[in-house]
Amino acid sequence: MTLVYRFPRVGIQAFDWPAPVQPIAQSRNLLNGRRYVTAAKRERRVCSLTVSGLSRTGAGYMEVLKDYLRGGINLVRLTSIRNPLLEADVPDAQRRLTVINWTQGETDYPLSWQIGSGPDPLAWVTGTALPATVVTDSAGFPAIQISNLPPNRLVARVGEFVEGRQDLVVRQVRRVARNAWSNASGVAVVRVTRAFTLGTIVGANLAAEDEGVFEVVGNLPRAPQPPYRDFSYNWEFQEVFADEVTGGFEEVDPWR
């Protein structure tokens, strides 16, 4: 098992969560110059972020995380950070369902009821249920059709993420490929960069977050600390998959 530590809640100064990177092999025919391109390695995402040393006790959390990572042997789970300046101007409560947590001290727990002796708890959620269906839009691109949205509004902006849910646990996240508007009935067809592959989608969340497991690229960051001024930890990450490590992942959240 490889330990995967969730990244702590710290003050982020800059964050880069790009589309997946696909290395390619390229050659050209010497006679006619024709270009030949094939995928060379497995597609994976890369990510970089800059953490404030002073905001939200960032330096302390970063030094503790470096201890946990053991020089880069262990991994981190990262979640994309939303930028309100790049989002559609529709409240979250009208674009998504959110599972409600309750807090004891500094620890968050899912708020749920148990029905009788059944194995499945009844989760408490807030927001709006958005029924969804996987479709192809009028131009032939992969899309997801979402209903129960506010009518005649810009409900998703290009570059945001949309989540398709099979249930409250199983989900897929895709990037929105163009601005999406709802019609007078509150229905929007949201074009995505890649088709959803879940067998069944019962609902969607707009303004969603993407996430993944990453390894540190290069050495763990060092951050010289000037007196009375902020300083930064600069991280570079590359995605790792569970089938690439012996025994898979063991998730750890030491900040709860």
Rank of each mutant, 00 (worst) to 15 (best):
P20Y: 02
E160C: 00
G212T: 04
V176S: 01
G164N: 10
R153Y: 00
T103Y: 06
R191E: 11
D210P: 07
T103G: 01
P23C: 10
A59L: 06
A39I: 15
V189S: 00
I73G: 02
L198F: 06
L111G: 01
Y228P: 00
D210F: 09
L97H: 11
S138V: 03
N205F: 13
L85S: 02
G71M: 02
E106A: 10
Q104D: 14
N148Y: 03
F141N: 12
V99D: 07
V37H: 00
G58E: 08
T107M: 12
V170G: 02
L149S: 11
A139V: 09
L122E: 14
V240S: 00
A39N: 14
N74P: 01
P18H: 05
F231A: 04
F161D: 03
R171C: 08
S52W: 04
Q94E: 15
G71R: 05
G11P: 10
Y228F: 15
A59R: 15
T128A: 11
P224W: 09
S185I: 05
P221C: 04
A40V: 07
R194W: 01
Q114Y: 06
D89Y: 02
E211A: 09
F241Y: 14
R165T: 10
W124M: 14
R77K: 15
R82Q: 13
A139L: 01
T136A: 05
V187E: 10
L65E: 02
Y36H: 14
D210I: 00
R35K: 15
L206D: 09
Q104M: 13
N152G: 02
R95I: 04
Y61C: 08
M62F: 04
Q22P: 11
C47N: 13
R42K: 05
G199L: 04
P18C: 04
G118P: 00
P110N: 08
A19H: 01
A25S: 14
A208W: 05
L86Q: 06
P121W: 06
D167L: 11
W235Q: 07
F15L: 09
R194Y: 01
S112H: 12
E43D: 02
L3F: 07
E239Y: 01
Q238F: 00
N219Y: 03
F196M: 04
Q104H: 14
N183D: 15
T98A: 09
E209W: 08
I144H: 02
N101H: 12
P142C: 03
E163I: 08
V155G: 07
V10C: 10
Y228L: 15
A184N: 08
V170F: 12
W255G: 05
Q166S: 15
V173C: 10
T128E: 06
L30H: 06
L78V: 11
R222E: 12
G71H: 03
L54V: 15
E87N: 04
P226M: 10
E87M: 12
R153F: 01
E43L: 10
E106T: 15
I144C: 11
A19M: 06
Y36A: 11
G33T: 11
L122Y: 13
V51D: 07
T193A: 05
Q104L: 11
E251F: 15
E106I: 07
V169K: 09
T2H: 08
P221F: 01
N32V: 14
S147C: 00
L86I: 00
A156C: 08
S182I: 05
